[in-house]
Design a protein around this nucleic acid. Structure first.
Lengths: 183, 183
DNA sequence: ATTATCTATAGATCTATAGATAATGC
DNA sequence: ATTATCTATAGATCTATAGATAATGC
């Protein structure tokens, strides 16, 4: 009757849908966004592309799941860093960089387009942002500046934009130190 | 006989090739990267797609010209800001942000992939980086950190990643102030 | 002669729908 | 009954090459 709305990501997926997302993720991470087509995805699952549409309304539905996974795992990584080393901006930055560089294609997918906010689990975006906000003592402007710095560093590194001989460790250290000196 | 190599961007383009690049740029800036196809580009010029290949070896050749234009204009904008207000990081940041937000699709094209370094005019990449490096007193690490911050701010803004109510002016100010206090 | 264009076309894709078939679960 | 799959297919594209034709420049 009524079209089912695009479901919220991350919840109430059937086991088969989860398998599809897992295959999509493997495909994306191994071969990049251009390889993530419905046909290739189906091939990797041993089925035909049209069958995917019984599990997801469209390709975007699969991508949204991947974006939600990335946000969830990034939040996880940052929370773990915070737990190990409370209040340490350095620890958060390291966790951020490590996660992003371990999953460059996924990080790009989740980051280089507008967030599909209405399709994401409520609170997920905030949850990913909170550890940094806490490390910034609740200073939203500082937290946003620090996020921009961290995102800029990893995305430029992912795209190979720094000169080959650039000392990125030093640039990270320099930026974090500047952003997190008292007052 | 020998394949002509991909020519360096920005130099020795025929007048017609320049028209093609201008049309490509208008198309990109108005309609985004997905609209920049050889067919659509040809349509806008009133010719057929195959004719384009008499002027450029391939689509990448056209894109490289656009990337070179962006770098050149960004360098120009930063040099002008520097001339108006020597040594001011604030002025450079404002010029950077203004340029990027005025040309978001072009900025993304030039920025969200590896630089085609061998096809760019020699020295162009450096030229775009130099005003910031000078404003950082030659401190390469600080310049890279500041670049990452500025790129992070504009690209996150372009992708609508900040909350709608975020005070981006304040975040810029906060970041720049932190990065440019005497050490 | 050279150059810019054209037509025709190769050769690859894509996403997504419709409707049939087979298998599973009540 | 419901669900997952399949085949067949619509309907759009893409980039790029080959070879013919027309126009321009010596």
């Amino acid at each position: 009757m009524a079209d089912r709305p695009t479901p919220r990501a991350g919840t109430q997926l059937s086991p088969r849908a989860r398998e599809i997302v897992a295959a999509a993720r493997a495909l994306l991470e191994e071969s990049g966004p251009a390889a993530l087509t419905m046909r290739t995805l189906a091939d990797h699952l041993g089925i035909k592309a049209p069958s995917l549409y019984k599990h997801f309304p469209d390709k975007h539905g699969v991508e949204v799941e991947l974006i939600a996974q990335m946000l969830d795992e990034l939040a996880e990584a940052l929370e773990a860093a915070e737990a190990r080393d409370p209040g340490s901006l350095q620890a958060l930055a390291e966790a951020y960089r490590t996660y992003a560089l371990a999953h460059p294609h996924l990080y790009r997918l989740a980051t280089e387009r507008p967030l599909p906010r209405p399709s994401l689990p409520p609170g997920l975006e905030d949850r990913a942002a909170l550890p940094l906000l806490r490390a910034c003592g609740g200073d939203l402007d500082l937290a946003r500046a620090t996020w921009a710095f961290a995102h800029g560093m990893v995305i430029l590194e992912i795209h190979g934009r720094f000169p080959g001989d650039a000392d990125l460790e030093a640039a990270w250290k320099r930026g974090l130190q500047a952003l997190h000196r008292p007052g």
